[in-house]
Every structure is written in structure tokens, then in C-alpha cells.
Write a protein that binds this DNA or RNA. Sequence first.
DNA 1: CATGCCCCCTGCACGC
DNA 2: TGCGTGCAGGGGGCAT
Length: 295
Amino acid sequence: MPELPEVETVRRGLEPVLAGRRIARFEQRRPDLRFPFPERFAERLENQTILTLGRRAKYLLARLSSGEVLVMHLGMSGRFTITLPHQGKPQLLGDYTYDTGADPAHDHVVFMMEDGVTVTYNDPRRFGCMLLISEQELDEHPLFAGLGVEPLGNELTPDYLATKARGRKADLKAFLMDQRIVAGLGNIYVCEALYRAGLSPKRVASCLANGSGWPTSRAERLVPAIRSVLQDAIDAGGSTLRDYRQADGTIGGFQHTFSVYGREGEPCLTPGCRGIVQRIVQGGRSTFYCGKCQR
DNA sequence: CATGCCCCCTGCACGC
DNA sequence: TGCGTGCAGGGGGCAT
């Protein structure tokens, strides 16, 4: 799944075809994804103009002229495909060129914009979701109320991490995976950030604070590690695992830059380190790290 | 409140 | 070729 860099990449890909455009028709092909689709979903979308396409954590937020916000999450396998209209040919829903290689059986939702551009949401595992929430209620909605800081914003500081980590018994991996602490990190980028910071994923989270609650040098290292790995990934257009593609059909390249993720048994890339990347399981999910240079 | 585990679902790689 | 197993980028819900 798309973690923050992939969602941001998708947002940037969709923005030019969605923002400022009216949804002419909307097609919903099944009753639900992770949650049931909203009541009267198509009615509430059709003829609305998408004012802006934003992102919070791993959620895409399409602000509509009606005052509602279309909230979209890609889960593990969600993706969008943009299809341009055939030249000189009326573009009808269901009559579009499918160009991603994805199984059309999992095309659950189709947006047709006023200019004939089609945006299709495909999600084999259906862990994604779409919700309509009024703009006023967005911040108080259960999905958003508890979210932690945006890692690329100004609020992620060593002080913040130390405050949140103080007294925590969970390990660093679980702490950073917790969306209530830092919103948008996932399995890949937590592993990569901990590598960049030289911190073991098994270390207790409270090691980010000292006895007085002030940040330790570990917290000081972790902040730039998180920021840089996310920014580098965004700059590379996200990571492409299996058949994930960007909204415009091109493929992100950050997976070629992974230092530890998916590299079990391979040599650590830290200059001079003779360690081997190992895979362990934490909270039921794979963690990759070098036990030699990540302490 | 914090923590850990299960589950939702499909596709794919692997070993036999 | 077929089949069983384990694994996959998330996160809600529940028991403890």
C-alpha cells in the first residue's frame, strides 16, 4: 500500500485532471469496499466540482463545491487510472481504454469528468475506502480526530517525538507505525527511516526521551531520517511494488533505493558496515534492519 | 489509556 | 497441472 509518498504521488497525478473540474457522471459498481459506500453516493458526486485535491496522512481529500469532502484511502492495493477521451469520439462510461494491466473485475468506481477524462479506482483486496464528510465535520471525524502530525510538516520535531514516546513500552517500530503519532508512515518507510537514523526497530520507544522528557540524540536523528526518506521517495515518484503504478501510468522508482526493505540476507549498504540485513516479525509484519549499524 | 492480536480480501510466489 | 501455504504497502475492532 501506498504509504505517504505513494499517496502524495497519486495526488499529484490526479490533481491536474480532477481539481477545478466537474464530475459529469459517477459509476459505483459494488456496494462497498472496506466500508459501505456513502448513501446516494453518485447523486452527491455528480455535477459537483472538485475544488481541490489534498492529502492528510494516507487519505486523499477531494473538496467538493457542495461543501462535502470526498475522502479516499487506497488500502493495500488501491490505485487510480486516468484515461483520456478518444479523439472525436463521445466518451461513455464503460467504453474506455483500460491501460494498466489491472483486472477490470476490480474496477469498483469510475469518475467521468466534464471534459471526458475518466478516472477509475481499482482495488483487488478492497481494503480501501471512500467516504463523504461535510467539510466542517472533517477534523472531528473518528478517522481524522486522532491522527498524529504530518511528517513533512513543521510539527514533527524531536520534542514532539520525545513527548509522545515518554513512558511508552512498545518498540520503536510499533511506535512509528502508529498513525496517532506520525501520520503517513507505513511498513516500508518506518524500516527505511530507522535504518537512516541508525536505530534498532526493537528498541523501546521511550528511548527517544530522557528521564526529564527531553529528546535524546536518537530523537534528534530520527526526525531528519523520517523527513529525508519520505522526501526522497516523493522525489522519485514513490515506490512501485508488484504492479502498483502512479496515476499517470508511469512507475515510481524509489524501490530501487531501499536500503533494508525486502533485502533480507543482503549486505548492509552502510559504508564499512559488514552487517547483513535481517528480517524479523513485529506485530505480525516484517521488519528489515541491520543489527550491526542499527542500535 | 496502551498494547497485542485477529480480521477483512485477493493475488502471487513457492514447494511438493 | 494442481494444490496448500505463507506473504503482501493498512487499519478497525476487540480483549487484556
